[in-house]
Structure formats: C-alpha cells, structure tokens
Design a protein around this nucleic acid. Structure first.
Lengths: 211, 211
DNA sequence: ACCTGAACACCGTTCAAGT
DNA sequence: ACCTGAACACCGTTCAAGT
C-alpha cells in the first residue's frame, strides 16, 4: 500500500519537527498491524516506531480511533485501486469475476488492514465522514460495473445500487469467511468459491426468462 | 440468548464460592457488550459485574480471549437456534428467504455479539476448537438446506458444501454491511436487500437451462 | 506550530496467600 | 477447589512546559 504525501510542508525544520508525521504515523500503524497483529497496534507503539512520543500523535489525530480510521481509510483507497487494476486486466464480459478475484486477493494480502476496515472500532462511522465516503466509493465502483453489465444486457435492469449492495455483500462475506478459515467446506479452495460465487451472482442477476 | 447451565455442582458452599461462575461471567460479558459496547468488555468489568475479583476468572478461562471466545460460541449457538426457528416458520420453497430474514434479523438484534463472533480477536480459531465447531454447525445447517433444495430440484446438484459456503458468505456479508450502515445504496431498505439477495441466490443456484 | 515529560486512571496477567 | 489482594508492566489520554 503506497503512502501518499498528505500535505506539503515548506520548511521542515528537521531538528525535532517531523516532515510529515501524520503520514509517517499511518504508515507505521499499517506496518505494525501487518507484522505484529492488532493487539500490538497501540498509540505508544506507533509513536515509538515513528520516533516521537505518544502525545505527539494528538496533534494529528483526535485519538487512537482517529489513527485507526486513517488506516482503514487508506485501506479502502488501496482496495479501490486494486479493483480498478483487476477490471483493467479483463474488462467486459468477465468483469465481475476479475473484480471478485482482485477483491478476495486484496483481503488475503492485507488481512489485518481488511479486518480493521470492517472492524468494530470504526463500525459507527457517523463521526468519520471521510472514512464513510472512502468506503462508499468502493460501493460506487461496484455499482458502475453493474450498470455496465446492465447496458450490455447481462444484468436485468433493476436499481443498480441495490444490485451493487448485494454484490458487494457477497464479495465481502466471501473474503471474510475465507480469512477466518470458515469458508472451506468440502474440498473447495478459495479460488473455487470465488469462481462459484461469481457464476451464481451472474446467473442470479441475469435477465429473467419471462421478461 | 439463554444461558445454559454448563455444569452441575453438588455442594455449592455459598459463602464465597459461586454457583456457576463460568456461566455467570459469560452472561455478564454478553450484557456488558450489549449495553456498553466492546470497549467496556474488560475482564475486570465482567468480574465486577459478577461480584468477583478479576483474578477469579482465570479459574474458568485461560485469559480474556477465552472469555470472549465463550461469548462468541454462545452467539453461534443462538444464531443456529434462530435459523432453526426461521426455517420452521415456513419450510420448503421459501426456505432460503426465511433463513436469510432470520439471519439478518439476528445480526441486528445482537450486533455487538455478532461482531465478536466474526471479530479479529477470535479470528485465528486454531486454538479454539469448540468455537470452530460451533461456527461450523451453522455452515452445516446451511448445507442441509441446500441439499434439501437440491433434492426438490430447485438448486443444481453440485457440491452442497461449496454452495453452502457461498450462501453463508452472502448472508454474512449482507448482515455485516447492513450493520455498518454501508449497505443502503439507493432507497433500498435492509429488507429489500435481503429479498433481492435471496432471489439472486435462488436464481443463481437454480439448475441451468442447458442441462 | 509542534513536540516532550510527568502524571492519572485504567488494563490483562502473575503470584502468593487465604478458606 | 475456588477465590482474594497486592503487584507488575502496560495502555490511552490530560496537562503544563519547552523550542
């Protein structure tokens, strides 16, 4: 996950002022989450890894939850980009399958971040409007794909937003259960399940015979 | 959620020995989770609410995670029962829809417990075999339903376990996104989404025209 | 404007001790 | 066998102070 520079400072007096502490804290938090798990994701640990004291973080985030929300936010952006890359590989007919593969792959490549994105800590996002809109952009991306499939007659022409929500839910559920190791029923691998899910969704959303 | 007596004691010397502390702790934890949220679910708070010291809990659970796992375990049992009641209302043709309604309703009635059931804290259940098998029983329940739908020709006869995993994933994803408030796209209510999801799944899993 | 250092009220977990 | 009480190393957060 790339760490975009979130703001530009003109005179970074490097003695005890950090160049871009906010971005550095988010990056450190993401690294700790990946390497040591969610229990190790403490404000103090993140601050120490970045070379500042814990109290310095309060200049950039309202509290620990704010930092975690920023990590989740970056996660949604990275997911969005991964899906864009997925659809670019093979647009059109196989669109949903490629997106589904990219989606589940992202979850497996960033399991801890993915869990944080949908975790209880940021579940009530009513006070985190930026996080909500970033998550929303993933739903919008799926809705655009649905609209395209409707345009070529592969999905029946009902509310694309509703179809997108149903599709996203399917992808999210599959990603989660496979992360938890609860999705391998018989001899089915995760790839098999993604394939099956894609087929079921495409057939299920297809125009009905009698219309 | 009922609290089954987990063991019977013959001589409960009531002075400072608790009758069934383990069950009482799980019940208190569930109550705290519901009333005050996951942040308030500390070992000390649970112990205090039960009238014992924090250290007393270590006689019944290996650690805080063990208590949380027990809460999740009871959650999966309650979910299983809720699904059984759901199918009993209207078996047969409308089976999946009733199960879907019961599933999402359970998540909305016990949001905090539902999150714990799929939360990061018990995600790696390799050391929690009882929790895993309790969760597994939900998957098995869904698989049985799929097998019945296959028997009457409403679902095509492929690996029922794989179909069950895909179905469970859809239900779980929908439950989660609706809990997070991220599933309301257009004017669709959660009930609309459950309805749509059920239809998409039933059509998607139906026998293919050319077979 | 940005960061430090001391302090406060917590937390999970341990260990020895009590009945 | 079951529980208490003191103690340890942590944690998020505050507040005043330093540059």
């Amino acid at each position: 996950m790339p760490t975009p520079a979130l703001r530009v400072r003109r005179k970074p007096s490097r003695d005890y002022h950090h160049g871009d502490l906010k971005a550095a804290l988010i990056a450190a938090a993401t690294r700790i989450l990946r390497d040591k798990g969610p229990d190790a994701l403490t404000l103090r640990a993140v601050a120490a890894a970045t070379g500042v004291t814990a109290t310095a973080t309060y200049r950039h985030f309202p509290d620990r939850r704010g930092l975690i929300a920023a990590v989740a936010e970056q996660g949604f952006r990275a997911l969005h980009e991964a899906l864009l890359r997925g659809i670019r590989v093979s647009p059109g007919r196989l669109g949903l399958k490629q997106v589904a593969i990219a989606y589940v792959r992202f979850a497996h490549e960033h399991p801890a971040v993915y869990r944080v994105m949908f975790g209880a800590e940021v579940a009530d996002g009513s006070d985190l409007p930026v996080l909500r809109s970033t998550a929303r952009s993933v739903l919008d991306f799926v809705a655009q794909g649905i609209a395209q499939l409707q345009a070529v007659g592969l999905v029946r022409p009902t509310d694309p937003m509703r179809m997108a929500a149903v599709t996203w839910a399917s992808l999210h559920g599959l990603a989660m259960l496979s992360l938890d190791g609860q999705a391998q029923g018989g001899a089915s691998s995760v790839d098999d399940l993604v394939e099956e899910m894609t087929q079921v969704m495409m057939f299920g959303m297809a125009p009905r015979p009698g219309s």
